[in-house]
């Protein structure tokens, strides 16, 4: 067999797998949004854009979109700030640095459900370590899953806990590419530590920052398990975002066309956001 034919056969196999496992389900899901179905076994009826007008007129959709934005933006902002902070500390030379660096990635290796259960246990009404700490400080108790704000805060906290290690690792790798002589030149030029961070570290981290924020945004906006396991979207929809709304619509209300519509809208929103993001923060530096 010629090398050309070998190459073509590998290419075709790859394309087929992509088609079967990714493209087909996506196309199928999008196509579902143009039909109405009472169950997965019922015959679909074509209704055109009716699902879209219906979904867009519900307050639940806009509430979920808003929740998704609040959840994603605050999670990412905190992850980036804490991640850079920890990366800066881990980039210093100190005894046992490699051990600490290794340990810092641990939360990322744990299954989501373990982190969520641990958090639930920490805020348990009677024995939770956080509950007790708050009581010891003389502060009023926080009803983590009953108050809308606290529920959102706990979703954000758990997500930050889970993914900050990833962000830290990315920034640490970025920091190690900054030549030490740049900091030295800046020291000689009369900067203090804060000025060096602003004039050297941050611009040098910009490419990493761009990618990290993008990846985290896409993952977080679509993230299902944390919120589902933690609050189930409650109380009264206050932590429900589009992924959860789409799921409950399709699988608990058996409005399959509606669920598919919400998923499709979520996908469109994300695609447009990513497109705009790349216009503002181009990955290749040459044009800036």
């Amino acid at each position: 067999m010629s090398s050309k034919a070998t190459f073509a056969s590998f290419l075709i196999i790859g394309l087929l797998i992509t088609l079967v496992l990714i493209a087909a389900p996506v196309v199928y899901a999008i196509s579902l949004s143009f039909y109405t179905m009472d169950s997965f076994v019922a015959d679909p009826d074509w209704i055109g854009l009716a699902n879209y007008t219906r979904v867009l007129s519900t307050s639940a959709f806009w509430n979920a979109l808003g929740n998704g934005l609040v959840y994603s933006i605050s999670t990412i902002a905190l992850q980036v700030i804490i991640g850079i902070g920890i990366a800066l500390v881990l980039n210093q030379t100190f005894r046992g640095r490699n051990l600490v660096r290794g340990l810092s990635i641990l939360p990322y290796l744990l299954p989501t459900v373990v982190i969520v259960l641990t958090f639930k246990w920490m805020v348990d009404g009677s024995i939770g370590i956080l509950t007790r700490a708050i009581a010891a400080l003389g502060l009023p108790p926080i009803h983590w899953f009953e108050s809308p704000q606290a529920a959102m805060a706990s979703s954000v906290m758990v997500s930050v806990w889970l993914w900050t290690p990833f962000v830290t690792t990315a920034f640490l790798a970025g920091l190690q590419t900054v030549p030490a002589s740049l900091y030295e030149a800046a020291k000689v030029d009369g900067t203090n530590a804060i000025q060096r961070f602003y004039h050297i570290t941050l611009p040098m981290l910009k490419p990493v920052l761009t990618v990290v924020v993008l990846l985290r945004a896409v993952w977080t906006f679509n993230k299902f398990d944390v919120i589902w396991l933690l609050t189930g979207g409650g109380p009264v929809g206050s932590t429900e975002h589009l992924a959860i709304l789409s799921y409950t619509t399709a699988f608990t209300k058996f409005d399959i066309g509606g669920g598919a519509t919400i998923a499709t809208l979520s996908f469109l929103f994300l695609a447009i956001s990513v497109f705009i993001y790349f216009r503002i923060f181009p990955l290749d530096e040459e044009e800036s």
């Binding site: 002589s181 740049l182 030295e184 030149a185 800046a186 000689v188 004039h199 611009p203 910009k206």
Partner: peptide, 12 residues
């Protein structure tokens, strides 16, 4: 004032 071997110009 110092001049470094690898110049150490601020790249951005």
């Amino acid at each position: 004032a110092m001049v470094f071997q690898n110049y150490a110009l601020y790249p951005h």
